[in-house]
Computed example of a mutant assay.
Amino acid sequence: MKIGVDEAGRGSVIGPLVVCAFASISQTHLKELGVKDSKDLSKKKRDELFDILSEMPHNVVICSPERIDNSLNLNDLEVDLFAEALAIMPEGEIMLDACDVNADRFARNVSSKSNLNCIAEHKADENHPEVSAASIIAKVTRDRAVEQLSEEMGIDLGSGYPSDPKTKTAVKELVKGERPHECLRWSWKTVSDAWGGTPPPRPNALQRTLF
């Protein structure tokens, strides 16, 4: 059994950060399905594979903007999230897509947090089918969450990433109230710039400016 773990939404200013752990018995089967890094697939193909992969053993952890704002830093938070995703997975060889510039350090930290033996590599989502599968589930889950927010709020949030013009426009609208909207990551520089200064802290938030 091979287990891959990956995330989606680390750099997004809107919506959740999603981590998925995925277990695979056959990497050959995943390759035959056309599984590869989610960034290399069309939306249609990701959606098709999501339906298939969701029937296989996996665990998804959805981290809210509030939890992100309440965290000390993203690297430590993602160590926690990767460990949480692994908590109910079957035993197997664990490969992580490294979120730290130091892949070995990331592996050590997740291993310590989860009490499991983990290996981490940069671009693991490109080189290991089980991590590619995790990346697909994580990305589709996150993208659908942002799409649902757009529908509920009646505003086009775009991809949720700061480089997206639609997202930039949406952020400007979402900071017009007494507080920034709950779907925003208040500690992101994109939000503080749109707010015109440091936003009021979330309850119990450790306020700082990121990205």
Rank of each mutant, 00 (worst) to 15 (best):
P200Y: 04
K172H: 13
R179M: 05
P162A: 13
K139M: 03
S114C: 11
T169S: 06
R67E: 08
R108Y: 04
I25W: 12
K31I: 02
V146N: 11
G34Y: 05
T209V: 14
I137C: 09
N109F: 03
C99M: 03
L96P: 09
K172Q: 15
P180S: 07
C20H: 14
A103M: 08
D76M: 11
A23C: 07
S42T: 12
N59Q: 13
F211T: 09
I14Y: 01
E126P: 09
V175S: 10
C99Q: 04
L206T: 13
L33D: 01
L17Y: 01
K45S: 07
N115R: 08
A124T: 03
D80C: 01
C99V: 06
L74F: 14
N127D: 11
P199I: 15
A124D: 07
D76F: 02
H128C: 09
V18D: 01
A103W: 05
I137E: 04
D156L: 00
L157F: 02
P199A: 14
S163G: 08
A21N: 06
L96Y: 03
L206Q: 15
N204E: 13
T167D: 11
P180G: 00
E55C: 00
L49W: 09
F50P: 05
V35K: 14
R142L: 08
I14M: 07
A85I: 08
D37L: 14
I3A: 00
A133R: 09
R105Y: 10
Q148S: 15
L74V: 13
I88S: 11
S159D: 00
E126K: 13
W188P: 03
K113T: 04
R202M: 12
K172E: 15
L86N: 01
D125R: 07
M153L: 15
L41R: 02
L174S: 11
T167R: 06
P165T: 15
D97T: 05
A98N: 11
I3P: 05
K39Q: 04
V101I: 14
K36T: 12
D156F: 10
E78Q: 03
Y161Q: 03
E91P: 08
G158R: 06
E32V: 00
A8S: 13
K2E: 10
L72Y: 07
M95H: 04
N109W: 07
N109A: 10
E55R: 00
S42N: 02
S112D: 03
Y161M: 06
D193R: 14
S163Y: 04
L74N: 10
G160P: 12
E7W: 01
A98S: 15
S163K: 15
S26E: 13
I88H: 09
